[in-house]
């Protein structure tokens, strides 16, 4: 499969974004797997959806890459654009950090939302990007999710969200915390309207995002090996969490404890989504 096939997006802009937001791919031809140490041919890795073909390590993906890999070719249209974080707290260095992340990722914020088709079924889809402020949720992130849900409510569409986040964005303080309530309340409306919401937890999905909309999927999927949990690494360290099992806060730990429905390898994800959507949407999203 050629790179352009699974990128799906025809527009040059989207492709450019996808490349930019990819998870720190060195420009070289070869890349070493951080888990097993295998030396991987970069092009092969791309073909394998950025999963190590020896040990199955799942590399992080940029938001646009993620969407492209999931939706039917050339169907994604971004919505809820034109929003930019301010600096409501006058937090030191915040604006500079945002500007830097905008430049390196080509994204406006840490999450991209839009409409697309998956297996011919119209959906609202969103994907967060760890390379933008650690995928942290501030006011714009929350607003984009709510606008995506509102789109789904208006047009009676299912929602698929790839949840990836280090937590609430510290630099927007208490306003970030409120995004947890704001997004969860929006999900309540979907539920009341009997519209399906599938959350896919990808590495890492922690803290404020995990403790809000990410944990409210009708069906919850996790990617293998993803870090998923309430306390971020440094918070847990400060709180002195003891007796951690070896797989603590990993996707498989969450599966064992009944907190996700399945751990699904990236290769099978699209087909899995198609199956779940088929179950949930008798006549939702078919109008496309």
């Amino acid at each position: 499969m050629a790179r352009d096939d699974w990128f799906g997006l025809k527009s040059g802009k989207a492709r450019k974004l996808a490349r930019k937001s990819a998870d720190a791919v060195p420009d070289g031809l070869w890349i070493k797997c951080p888990k097993c140490g295998e030396i991987l041919f970069n092009k092969e890795l791309e073909k394998n959806l950025r999963v190590c073909n020896k040990c199955g390590y799942h590399y992080k993906l940029g938001a646009m890459q993620r969407i492209a890999m999931t939706v039917d070719e050339d169907t994604f249209e971004e919505i809820a654009t034109g929003l930019r974080p301010g600096n409501p707290l006058d937090f030191p260095d915040y604006e500079d950090k945002l500007e830097k992340d905008r430049k390196t990722t080509g994204l406006e914020e840490a999450i991209v939302v839009g409409t697309a088709a998956i297996g011919g079924r119209r959906v609202v889809i969103g994907a967060a990007d760890f390379t933008f402020r650690g995928g942290s949720m501030g006011s714009v992130y929350g607003e984009k999710i709510v606008q995506a849900v509102e789109k789904a409510l208006d047009e009676r569409l299912p929602v698929v969200l790839f949840c990836c986040s280090g937590g609430a964005r510290m630099q927007e303080g208490i306003l970030s915390l409120m995004q947890m309530a704001k997004t969860s309340a929006a999900i309540a409306r979907m539920s009341a309207e009997k519209l399906p919401y599938i959350s896919v937890l990808v590495d890492p999905c922690t803290a404020g995002v995990h403790a809000s909309f990410a944990s409210l999927g009708d069906v919850m999927i996790a990617e293998p090996g993803a870090l998923i949990g309430f306390a971020g690494a440094r918070v847990a360290q400060q709180a002195g969490v003891i007796n951690r099992p070896p797989n603590f806060q990993q996707a498989e730990f969450q599966l064992d404890n009944g907190m996700v429905d399945m751990v699904t390898p990236r290769k099978e994800l699209r087909q899995t989504l198609i199956k779940i959507l088929q179950f949930c949407c008798e006549d939702i999203g078919n109008a496309a």
Partner: peptide
Amino acid sequence: FRAMGQFLT
């Protein structure tokens, strides 16, 4: 809660 948050459009 829908209205909470500050950003530029």
